[in-house]
Structure formats: structure tokens, C-alpha cells
């Protein structure tokens, strides 16, 4: 039973990290219909920025709490800046191009960013400082649920609540939903669509950066390649839940995280990714638009 609960929590932890990244995919897809392949790289850059800032601060002898806050903010700020700039350079000129062009541009951007970090930093795995302390009150259950699992779950829940608030109740959120529904109509009612698209990229990137910080601190190491697998997994999760749907992305991520965790725990860790992708294929065969996606009916 202990083993089951351990797997359950590790699955939830994984799932909530996927969710932070998947939200970026799904929001961007909902608004401009683009698979932002460079999103995984933004997550990686967030983790790297957090790593650099945290290490510098710890060398200068800052207290742990200050390090966590400053590194988190820095990661979010720089990731958002990257997301914003990437959109302006690689996607904005292609708004009206054939559908595949922005996708290729995104793949190119992803290759570029990976190699940029590889050249500017290093190709080695770097040890990420343990930012999340071991809590004393977690001592009795520490063999089942680690402190960082708990912190990750709580942080992601808070972030999700804030995001839900932004999207449901603020002006930006309303404008985003309007743009996602119908871009031309949104323009007609006076929404600055370009600004909204930028805002979407910024919010999505900040979420990915928080995910990057949390996972890097949880696993304890990073390198330039972590964005690729995480990106593909998160994208899988977004599609699983129905791309374009925000609750769908969260649900899909949790399902994916739990599947992976249980498959690793009970079957074999070699086939972890195979299970993830097989699950995706199976769900899409029976529910072609994902778990919560709306089946699109087209009028002729």
C-alpha cells in the first residue's frame, strides 16, 4: 500500500509539472493555432536562469528563502522575455503564412535555442542546488512522500488558481478567451490582438519557468537537452486533454503523470515513454479530439 501511495504521489508530482508546461502549449494553440515547439526550450531556459541566479546568490551567501524567491522571479522574467521575443521574431511575421510554416519555424527556433545554451554554457549535466528544504514535519512519511513533492503540488495548485482567476475574471483573460474564440471578431470589438498574443506567450512562458525551477530542484540536475523530452511529454499531455482547453491540459497532464508513474513502478522503467505515447494513441483513437476537447463539427 505504501508503494502504491508513493507511486501515486510521484505521478501527481510529475503530472503537475507537465501541467505547468502543457498550459503554455494549450494557451498558445488556443489563440493562434500553433504548436509552439520552442516551448520546451523556454522551460529549459527558465531552469537554466534559475540555476545561474541561485548559484550566484548562494556563492554570495544569500539566505535560502531569498535565493528561492529571487531565482523564481528571475526565471519567470527571463523566460517570459524569451517567449515574447520568440513570438515577435519567429511567429508574428508568419500569421498569414501556410499552416506548416510557423511549425517549421518553431522547430528551427527550438534547435537554435538548444544550441545557443549548449554553446554559451555547457553540454554537461550541472548539479542544481537543492532549493526546497526537507521539512521536519514530513519526517514520518518521508519514505513515501518527499518534501519537494509536497512543495511542487502546493505551488502548482496555487499557480493554477491564479491562472484560473486571470483567465476567468481579468480584462486580459476575457480578451484572451475572446481572441481564442474568434480573432477577427475580437479585433472588431476593439481588442488589440497582437498584445493579447504577446500576453499569452508571456504567461505561458512564466508558467514553464516555474515548472523548470521546480523540476530542476526536484531532480537535482539540468542540461541543455531537458527541454526536448519535457516539451514533447507536455505537448502529449495537452493533446491528451484536448488541445486548446485549459482544464483539459491539467487533466491530461495528471493522467499522463500517473500512467507513467504506475507503469514505471509496476511494469518496467525502460518502457516509461512507450506507455505514455501508447496511452496517447489509444485515447485519440477512441476520442479523436482528446479528453475534454470539443469535437468540431464543420458546416459545409
Amino acid at each position: 500500500m505504501d508503494y502504491f501511495i508513493e507511486l501515486l504521489f510521484s505521478g501527481l508530482t510529475r503530472g503537475s509539472i507537465y501541467a505547468l508546461i502543457a498550459l503554455g502549449y494549450t494557451m498558445v494553440y488556443g489563440i493562434i493555432g500553433l504548436i509552439n515547439f520552442a516551448h520546451g526550450e523556454i522551460y529549459m531556459i527558465g531552469a537554466f536562469t534559475a540555476f545561474i541566479v541561485a548559484t550566484v546568490l548562494s556563492i554570495y551567501g544569500f539566505p535560502l528563502l531569498a535565493i528561492i524567491v529571487i531565482a523564481g522571479v528571475a526565471a519567470a522574467v527571463w523566460s517570459s522575455a524569451y517567449g515574447y521575443t520568440i513570438e515577435k521574431i519567429a511567429y508574428k511575421p508568419l500569421r498569414h503564412a501556410p499552416r506548416l510554416s510557423p511549425l517549421i519555424s518553431a522547430i528551427g527556433m527550438s534547435i537554435f535555442l538548444q544550441n545557443y545554451v549548449l554553446l554559451a554554457q555547457t553540454s554537461d549535466f550541472l548539479p542544481f542546488p537543492a532549493l526546497i528544504p526537507e521539512f521536519e514535519f514530513m519526517e514520518p512519511v518521508a519514505h513515501i512522500v518527499g518534501s519537494s513533492d509536497l512543495v511542487i503540488l502546493i505551488t502548482t495548485t496555487i499557480v493554477m488558481l491564479i491562472l484560473t482567476y486571470i483567465i476567468k475574471f481579468t480584462r486580459v483573460g476575457k480578451a484572451m478567451r475572446a481572441t481564442a474564440q474568434d480573432r477577427t471578431m475580437a479585433m472588431l470589438v476593439g481588442i488589440n490582438v497582437n498584445q493579447i498574443i504577446s500576453a499569452t506567450f508571456i504567461i505561458g512562458s512564466a508558467l514553464a519557468a516555474i515548472g523548470g525551477l521546480l523540476i530542476a530542484s526536484h531532480i537535482g540536475q539540468i542540461n541543455f537537452y531537458i527541454g526536448f523530452i519535457a516539451g514533447i511529454k507536455a505537448f502529449t499531455a495537452a493533446v491528451l486533454g484536448g488541445i486548446g482547453s485549459i482544464p483539459g491540459a491539467v487533466l491530461g497532464s495528471l493522467v499522463l503523470g500517473l500512467t507513467e508513474s504506475f507503469a514505471t513502478g509496476y511494469v518496467s522503467s525502460d518502457y516509461e515513454d512507450v506507455f505514455a505515447f501508447s496511452l496517447l494513441v489509444l485515447i485519440l483513437i477512441f476520442k479523436p479530439s482528446g479528453l475534454l476537447g470539443k469535437a468540431e463539427t464543420k458546416k459545409v
Binding site: I232, F277, P288
Partner: peptide
């Protein structure tokens, strides 16, 4: 299986298929 899928769903399923083949070969 992918006959019913459209656009991006198709893209990700084919991507998954490619990864499955590679992972099976690897493991």
C-alpha cells in the same frame, strides 16, 4: 488508427509512433 484524426492530432500521434518505434528498438 489515425484516419479519423485531423491536423495537429495527427502530427502528435505520428510523432508518438516514431518515438515508440525508437524506444522499442532501444529497450
Amino acid at each position: 488508427p489515425v484516419l479519423r484524426l485531423r491536423g495537429d492530432y495527427l502530427a502528435i500521434v505520428t510523432l508518438g509512433f516514431g518515438e515508440i518505434i525508437r524506444l522499442i528498438l532501444e529497450n
